[in-house]
Amino acid sequence: MNLKQQFKEGLLTKNPVLVQLLGMCSTMAITTSLFNGIGMGLSVTIILICSNVLISALRKVIPNQIRIAAYIVIIAGFVTIVDLCLQAFLPDLSESLGVFIPLIVVNCIILGRAEAFASKNGVVASALDGLFQGIGYTVALIIMCVVREFLGSGTFGGGILNGGEGIRILPEGVPAMLMVMPVGGFLTLGCLIAGAQWLVKYLDKKEKAKEAAK
């Protein structure tokens, strides 16, 4: 596995949100302010790296028949650890992400990567896979957050900047409230997926042209 390839897959061509369409529940629900997106993205990335490493290390020990049960126990363990730490050290983030942190247990990205990658590859490769997939997830979430927050609340950086209120770009009364509601999540995600597909095709074409030139 080469590093560049893995990075590109995580970020774009096999992006967990935009291409694999995994973890939709949290993607729709929490992407309403920048703070949420970064917090959720980092939490998932940390859990993904930890669970990938552990599952990859144990891949020869865990018998095939009970692998799903074992994976879920490991993932649930890490999720609970992150949940407890957030509650203790970042209570504001924990409150605004609410039930979606415990729900990472059933986030398909984690189990999906465990099953598709970590159970077949070495520890280092799995850790990198976790990192890159996590980055891909985080980037997708942040884009969704920025777009939805801008259109729906008219602010940038809600939850972090300007004492938590965010920097106001559009005046009160102009932003479309529906964009921070679930409807807006679907609309934004749809447009984002279309954009990602276009980009994948565009890069593909460029690469082919390059090869042909050679």
């Binding site: 009970i66 649930a76 407890l84």
Partner: peptide, 25 residues
């Protein structure tokens, strides 16, 4: 035994984390 061990170790790790964070929460 494998599943038992995994579960036991996870539970142990959780208990440890819980003891650290309990008071703060």
């Amino acid at each position: 035994v494998t599943l038992l061990l995994i579960t036991a170790i996870t539970a142990g790790a959780l208990a440890w984390i819980n003891s650290i964070t309990e008071d703060r929460i």
